[in-house]
Amino acid sequence: MENIAIGIGLAVGIAGLGVGIGQGLAANGGLQGMARQPEAGKQINNSMLLALVFLELVFLLTFVLGFLLMGKIH
């Protein structure tokens, strides 16, 4: 039981680490593009948000996995 709880914490933490780095990279690229071409800012902003959203999905899957595992604790 304790193993599962520790596993949940680890899973969420590691997923947060990876997704944080990935989203940082995506935001980096998007913001650089916007700084270089301010007139294309809106399009880049939309695309960047979409990319961030898809990256976030990875974390959310881990989050849900944690919930599923929490169901096994009971």
Partner: peptide
């Protein structure tokens, strides 16, 4: 799954 999970995860999280 992705649509529903995204909203759920963000808000509930």
């Amino acid at each position: 799954v992705s649509l529903s999970l995204r909203l759920y995860g963000n808000i509930e999280g």
